[in-house]
């Protein structure tokens, strides 16, 4: 990051914007192609897109082209400003999230000591967007979807943050790079062969984080807010064309970003065992390692999404308040005691 700090403000900012756009769009595209088009198709015993480009790899461009051509429909009674702004708010939270994730020792957007807590804070911005979409659509299904989403996201924010607390206690820092390095240079009871990926020592935290993340992403089995078989995709019902595409990108990019955060917190981020964490090689292989971990974790997300039925609203709240939060709290206490003891 020597270079970035020597650049003028506008230069570094435009680099960051381009990088952010690339990170969000490429990540969304990769996940849509690998998971939604191909992996899920194989799970459902079909081939997925095969005609556009080799193995349908250009299908994504075709889809984007299709969405861009579609008419941008506003329902007559919609609250026009709120309706139009909602997709931007949701996409904004995705962009804000992506800036905290490091892709390598020197590949980051901001290196804040608040790190993970900044991420947790901005991730809840999307709730406002969803509520805006639900309200602005002037549609009963959308309103119900929006309200369900709000209740759900707020309920699952808590276990998400509590699961992170254990990691932060163990790493001793909230800085994302610091958490990666803590895992890279750490040791499990004196054995440092693979560093200390918190996946092993914070297994409970990982478990809670992944479930809460699934709910934050409103993916099945926590997709009450979109629930296409009852609410007809909830708050997205009235959106078409470009704005729907933004929701769509937001959904998949956020899935990718959350996977990336989980990868940083529990799988050691850009680090792979066997190479010294200070090695310059990570500037090259780091982003690739990161991408691999993101694809793996988001695979888990989509695997669950296309396997499980959905919870009912009350069951979903019960799971959060009666199960995940107590577990996360116990995890924090246990982590704290062990941290002091060792």
């Amino acid at each position: 990051m020597m270079i970035l700090s020597e650049l003028a403000y506008w230069e570094s900012t435009s680099l960051r914007v381009v990088g952010g756009l690339a990170a969000v769009l490429l990540m969304a595209g990769t996940l849509v192609y690998i998971h939604l088009f191909k992996l899920v198709s194989f799970m459902q015993s079909r081939l997925g897109p095969m005609e556009t480009g080799p193995y349908g790899s250009l299908q994504l461009l075709a889809e984007v082209g299709k969405f861009l051509q579609k008419e941008d429909i506003f329902p007559r009674k919609a609250d026009r400003f709120v309706f139009a702004a909602a997709p931007f708010v949701i996409l904004m939270s995705t962009f804000l999230l992506v800036v905290v994730v490091p892709g390598g020792p020197d590949a980051w957007f901001i290196d804040s000591d608040l790190g993970i807590y900044l991420a947790m804070a901005v991730s809840s911005v999307s709730v406002i967007g969803i509520l805006m979409a639900g309200w602005g659509s002037a549609n009963k299904y959308s309103l119900m979807g929006g309200l369900r989403a709000t209740g759900q996201l707020i309920a699952y924010e808590l276990p998400l943050i509590l699961a992170v607390v254990g990691v932060v206690i163990q790493a001793g820092t909230m800085n994302m790079q610091g958490i990666v390095l803590a895992q890279a240079d750490g040791s499990i009871f004196g054995w440092s062969g693979i560093g200390n990926p918190f996946l092993l020592t914070q297994a409970v935290g990982f478990f809670v984080f992944m479930i809460a993340m699934q709910a934050e992403l409103t993916q099945s089995p926590f997709d009450m807010p979109v629930a296409e078989s009852e609410l007809v995709t909830g708050y997205m019902t009235e959106y078409s064309g470009m704005r729907f595409l933004m929701f769509f990108i937001g959904e998949f990019a956020t899935a990718g970003v959350f996977s990336a955060i989980a990868a940083v917190l529990f799988l050691g981020g850009w680090y792979v065992p066997g190479i010294d964490s200070a090695s310059n090689a990570f500037n090259v292989i780091g982003p690739l390692v990161m991408l691999g971990k993101v694809v793996f974790l988001s695979f888990l997300v989509f695997w669950f999404r296309f396997t499980f039925p959905r919870f009912r609203e009350d069951q979903l709240q019960k799971l959060a308040w009666k199960f995940l939060i107590p577990i996360a709290l116990v995890n924090i206490v246990a982590t704290g005691i062990l941290k002091v003891a060792f």
């Binding site: 899920v40 997709d223 629930a227 009852e230 396997t307 959905r310």
Partner: peptide, 8 residues
């Protein structure tokens, strides 16, 4: 299964 949310 689709009605209760599992699409596969």
């Amino acid at each position: 299964a689709v009605q209760v949310g599992a699409v596969t």
